[in-house]
Design a protein around this nucleic acid. Structure first.
Lengths: 359, 359
DNA sequence: GTTAGCACTCATAACAATCAAGTGCTAAAA
DNA sequence: TTTTAGCACTTGATTGTTATGAGTGCTAAC
């Protein structure tokens, strides 16, 4: 446990290291700290901080840089979010000022905007609620043996995909099948729909149809797509801004990692409720930060991820996050992210608002 | 005009430089050429090649590397495509062995497969025909003021997008509008549809509907999307394989370039019919190569693009391309690309084949 | 507990020396 | 006329040396 003075020194090291990217020495600190002590005193304090594992040096006679543990302590106890300048606020609003046709368009754009604002990479996930229900399922023949299947949910998301039935099922049976799905399943949560799809639905179909071949696969496929999480990654190329030219291979792997939708949930740590059981300050609100070694992926050991969970009424929770180097201007970014997720929520509520005018 | 012997030397320089990435000297060449002359003789020949601008050196006493003009000459007169080993052939087939629901899925996957095979970046564009016609337009209400608009074309592509009408138009009028579109426009090429949309259609709509507000924008939007080219870029991260660590900024710009769909047509040089008016050898068939300074973009000055145009019956032409450094193993890649585009065409024909069973 | 002073460490830059690869040129050989 | 051996010369890369400077740890005095 660092003393108050040590904590101030740590905070200053974080700040300066962040600005300059260079290790911070005792003399530099002397000129910057809010109290005056000699460099020798600072050196003594720094020695203690180093014993505690909060700062470290590259070689015997270099200045200190924060260790991951140091960042952790800084984030949990010292950081104060900075107010966001009004022009940034305007910029967010201006970027969001478009007509969106689907929620995913808003969510996707939010990742783009956030990455442009920060010059880091942004990841976004739309609002999701466990009790999102099925509101309708349609199949429209398009001629040429093509059909399009459309599934709408209470969250306002619409999933559609083209299929080809290859004469496996008559159009009569198809209509019946769609009617059965709607009669039986509309209004039910997608999770329940999934269960019923494995249970009673197949029996119903075989009872009333001549052949249900292919239909179940089709419906299952659309359902799976409608229920799956869609992540959007914006500003991938910003990873090049701070990459060491030496480890391009690592960077390549990271690029490939971000393209795999399957790993993003674990990155964003979606399953964990309260990640920090100790006593972190509460200024961060719904924002949390994960640092290098806290990922279970060595590729990210030099990266940090600032995650904000946002909440959109009954439509559930979404996530928006900033991925960058361990050393980021956290106090500014967290302020920004707080504001940004508020704006995103506003935009989403606005969308849903129209949405419910009519229902 | 290089002599026969100089041409052989140039070809060998290209080959060795490609393998090693190092400038090639006269002694190295002496051991590799299909004829024996002394290194001094080779030096003389190289001096001539350099006068002709086909090779160059980094500094006074370094080996030679091919200049862009040298590559150009090599590609036009010397290159011989290499036969593709059967296991590569199998790999292509295995990767394509899936059920595809839409043409764009095949096209997209083709970029991914090609980039994996080559370890370069691949760009693909689906087959397009100028006389693709409109085969149907639907609007399906989804409740909650949402509708989905669906446009199908003779090329088998289906464009769908969700819209919200906000009470601007009654569902009666909407149905009528859709009927008018289908009556008037089905069977016409999309280009003609576009013209009519600017001409007589608005009048028809105002004649028969109470209000057509919003509908024209909506239809125009779907139409535009259906008619626009969709490029797919696969293996972006492969750009990191050969990037100089020094010019990460340039690389970042290139990444952003590849994300802009609007610049890809000019990259692929889609408008040009016969790019090389002089007398290139014909072994390349429908494949052409563009080198650095032949792009009108300085970002690409160190890159090369191997482009194959393919043809799918009446469904028009598509393009598949490999983007990599100026120095690539062209003879292998061109053989591969030839084979690959054949396989892609097969797969597409297979898709269209089913497609027309029914019509 | 704080501070001035000092010896010590280490990365970095600058500089010279050396080496290896490769060139151009000349004069002799074919 | 073409080819080749020989040689002087250029240049980048490597290595070793030295100087510099930022920064530390420690000690003794305040």
């Amino acid at each position: 446990m660092p003393t108050k003075r040590q904590a101030l020194i740590l905070a200053e090291i974080v700040r300066i290291y962040n600005e300059t990217g260079q290790p911070v020495g005792s003399k530099t600190l002397m000129g910057q700290l809010p109290f005056h002590v000699s460099s020798a005193t600072i050196r003594n304090e720094m020695a203690t901080l180093e014993e505690d594992g909060l700062i470290m040096k590259n070689h015997t006679s270099s200045g200190r840089i924060p260790s991951t543990a140091g960042y952790r302590y800084y984030l949990d106890h010292l950081l104060q979010p900075t107010a966001v300048p009004p022009q940034v606020f305007d910029k967010i609003a201006a970027n969001f000022d478009r007509d969106y046709h689907e929620i995913d368009e808003i969510v996707k754009q939010s990742a783009t905007i956030l990455s442009n604002l920060t010059n880091y990479t942004a990841i976004s996930l739309g609002p999701e609620s466990a009790d999102m229900t099925l509101t309708g399922f349609r199949i429209i023949p398009l001629g040429n043996d093509q059909i399009i299947a459309i599934l709408a949910t209470s969250a306002g998301t619409v999933e559609s995909r083209v299929y080809r039935l290859l004469h496996l099922i008559s159009s009569d049976d198809l209509e019946k099948a769609v009617r059965i799905i709607n009669d039986q399943l509309v209004g039910l949560p997608l999770t329940v729909v999934k269960q019923k799809l494995a249970g009673e639905i197949p029996q119903l179909l075989t009872k009333y149809l001549h052949s249900s071949a292919g239909f179940l696969d089709l419906f299952g496929d659309v359902l799976k797509r409608a229920a799956s999480q869609h992540f959007y990654v914006g500003g991938r190329s910003n990873l090049l801004n701070f990459a060491q030219p030496t480890d391009l291979d690592q960077l390549k792997s990271l690029y490939q990692l971000l393209d795999k939708e399957s790993v993003l949930p674990s990155l964003l740590d979606l399953n964990q409720i309260d990640p920090r059981p100790d006593d972190p300050q509460q200024v961060l609100g719904p924002i949390s930060v994960r640092l290098g070694d806290e990922f279970n992926n060595s590729l990210l050991s030099d990266y940090g991820l600032i995650t904000a969970k946002y909440h959109v009424g009954q439509h559930g929770d979404g996530v928006i996050a900033i991925l960058g180097p361990t050393s980021m201007p956290y106090s500014q970014l967290i302020g920004l992210l707080q504001l940004f997720s508020d704006e995103l929520v506003k935009k989403l509520v606005e969308y849903y608002g129209y949405f419910h005018d009519d229902s």
